[in-house]
Design a protein around this nucleic acid. Structure first.
Lengths: 200, 200
DNA sequence: TGGATTCTATGACCACCGTCATAGAGCTTC
DNA sequence: GAAGCTCTATGACGGTGGTCATAGAATCCA
C-alpha cells in the first residue's frame, strides 16, 4: 500500500491514494481535504474539479481503491507461493506478513483504510459504508478463489476467506493499539492448521 | 453495552458512558464534547470540571470503561453457560451473539468503541492509544482465564483469546459495512471446532 | 449564618473545515 | 488567434469544534 511504482500518476490518482493513506493513519474525521491535496502535491483547486461530490466522493474512491489494492495483493501472494508447498496457511501468513512488516517499518502508524471508513462512516455516510462493503467483497473474492485453487472445497472457501479477513483486521487493530506484532503472529499461528485442514 | 441498570448514575459516569456510545457509533472525530453532554443529559459546564484534561481524557476514560465492560461480559457469559455442556465454542458463540443481537436491534449503528479509538487515535493521541491497548488486555484477561477453566491448556489459552477477540472485532467491522450478520456467524461457525479441539 | 467547596451556566475566542465563487492559466481545435 | 475546454489559484463564507474565562447556583461543614 505504500509503493507507487515508477510511472508517474496523475494528480487525481495521487489524491485518491493520499486520501487512503491519511485516512488509514488518522481516521476520516481528522483527515482534511487540504491535507489530502498537500500530501499528494496536488493543487487544492483541483479537489472541487476532480471530486465535485466533495469529501464523500473522495472517501468513497479511496476505499474502493484500497479494496482493489488488497485484492491485487492476494493474487500476488498466491503467485508467490513456493511451487512445492502451496498451502492455505502459507498464503495467510504471506498476507499477514505484509501488514506486519509495514507495522514495524512505520512504527504502527498505518491501519486499514477500509476499517477506518467503516468505523467513522458506517452510520452516517451511506455511500462510504457501501464502498467499504464492496471493498471487503473485492478483497475476499480473490481470496476465496485462491483457497479453492489450493484445494479447499468451494463450500467452505468463502467462509474461510471471511475468517481470514476478520482475523487480520482484528489483529491489526490490536497490534496498532499495543504497538506490538504479537496479535498478528498469533492469528497466523493459530489459524494456520485450521486452514490447511480444510484442504481435501 | 446499552443497558445501564436501574440505579441512577452520576453526571460524570453518564458522560463517560455517552462518550463511549457516541464514539462507537460516529467515531472519535465526529463526536463533539457538546454532543456528549447533551446525550448524557449533563450540563455542558461540567465537562471542564470533571474532565480538565479535555477530550483526550474523556476518550481515555470512555475506552477504559468499555474494556471493563467487555470483561464483565465475558465472565457473565461464562457463568451463563449450561452446566452440562461447557465448551469454549459456546462461550465464543455467546459473546458474539450479544454483538449480533445488538447489530440487528440497532440496525448496525454501533460498533466497538475500542476499535474506533484505535483507528482514530493510534498515531496521534498516545494516551488514547494506551488506553485502547489496556482495554484489549482487560478484555482478553478474563477470556484467557475462562478458556483455562473450560479445559484449554494455559499455554494456548492466551493465544486463543487473542484469536477470538481479533475475529470478533474484524467480523464486526465487516458486518457493519455490509449491514449483514453473516460475517459474525461465520467466524463463530468456523472457529468453534478449533476452540473445542484445544480442550485437553 | 457564613464561608468554602463543588458544580453549573453561558458567552466568547480562535482555529479549522468543507464548500463555494470567481478568476486566471494552459492547452487543444477549428 | 479566438474560442473552448480542462485544470489551477485563491480568497471568502458559514459552520463547528475544543477550550477558556467568568460568574452564578448549590451544597456542605464549621
Amino acid at each position: 500500500m505504500t509503493e507507487q511504482g515508477t510511472r508517474s500518476y496523475s494528480p487525481r490518482e495521487r489524491m485518491v491514494f493520499s486520501a487512503a493513506q491519511l485516512i488509514r493513519r488518522d481516521g476520516v474525521g481528522a483527515t482534511g481535504m487540504r491535507d489530502v491535496a498537500a500530501h499528494a502535491d496536488a493543487p487544492r483547486g483541483s479537489l472541487q474539479h476532480y471530486f465535485p461530490g466533495g469529501k464523500e466522493q473522495l472517501i468513497g474512491e479511496a476505499v474502493t481503491w484500497a479494496g482493489r489494492y488488497a485484492a491485487r495483493r492476494v493474487t500476488r501472494c498466491l503467485a508467490a507461493l513456493p511451487a512445492d508447498d502451496r498451502r492455505p496457511s502459507l498464503l495467510f501468513a504471506a498476507l499477514v506478513a505484509q501488514w506486519t512488516e509495514e507495522c514495524l517499518a512505520t512504527d504502527f502508524a498505518y491501519g486499514c483504510p477500509v476499517a477506518a471508513v467503516t468505523v467513522d462512516c458506517a452510520d452516517t455516510t451511506d455511500t462510504a459504508r457501501t464502498a467499504a462493503a464492496q471493498a471487503f467483497d473485492c478483497w475476499r473474492e480473490p481470496l476465496t478463489g485462491a483457497l479453492v485453487e489450493l484445494g479447499v472445497p468451494a463450500t467452505r472457501s468463502a467462509a474461510l476467506a471471511t475468517l481470514m479477513v476478520s482475523s487480520l483486521e482484528g489483529a491489526l487493530l490490536i497490534a496498532r493499539a499495543e504497538r506490538d506484532i504479537q496479535a498478528l503472529t498469533t492469528v497466523v499461528d493459530e489459524l494456520g492448521p485450521l486452514l490447511d485442514a480444510a484442504v481435501t
